[in-house]
């Protein structure tokens, strides 16, 4: 019996964008509100999981031609390098800093080095989750 996936596929096409928006929102809101790099990364990964469930691997790979192993490696590298960044400025390893900037139009915005650190966390989470799921499911086929 062939399962009709039209419904799931149509819904996925819309929902993925909502999830992606949510992921980016969670990522940036983490500083002062619930969210953060880890959750942001997981939500991002779950959108990929949804796509993989709705479509087959080839389609997803064609749409997103990214090697997720490299994404994970990049994330881990960012995390370590941000730590070393503090050493360059003579601070202890992994010291984070922040400063409030007054930017026209946007108003007061707080910029923080933690964001870069969290970006690394997110990328690693996305990379690892999708790598695991892809490698297991590719083995099935």
């Amino acid at each position: 019996m062939k399962i009709n996936e039209v419904l799931l596929q149509s819904v996925t096409k819309i929902i993925v964008f909502i999830i992606l928006t949510l992921a980016i929102y969670l990522f940036f809101s983490g500083h002062n509100n619930p969210g953060g790099g880890f959750v942001g990364g997981l939500v991002l990964a779950s959108s990929f999981v949804l796509m993989l469930l709705a479509f087959d691997i080839e389609t997803v790979k064609h749409g997103i031609p990214v090697d997720f192993k490299l994404v994970a490696a990049l994330g881990a590298a960012i995390v370590v390098i941000t730590g070393l960044g503090a050493v360059v400025f003579g601070e202890a390893f992994l010291t984070q800093t922040f400063r409030v900037f007054d930017i026209p139009v946007f108003g007061l915005i707080e910029l923080s080095t933690v964001t870069i650190f969290e970006l690394g966390v997110s990328l690693t989470v996305v990379g690892v989750v999708v790598t695991i799921i892809l490698s297991i499911s590719e083995d099935v086929s």
Binding site: G30, H31, N32, N33, P34, G35, G36, G37, Q96, F98, E110, S112, V114, E118
Partner: peptide, 8 residues
């Protein structure tokens, strides 16, 4: 740390 979310 400049953040209000203590978990993060």
């Amino acid at each position: 740390a400049g953040g209000q979310n203590i978990v993060n």
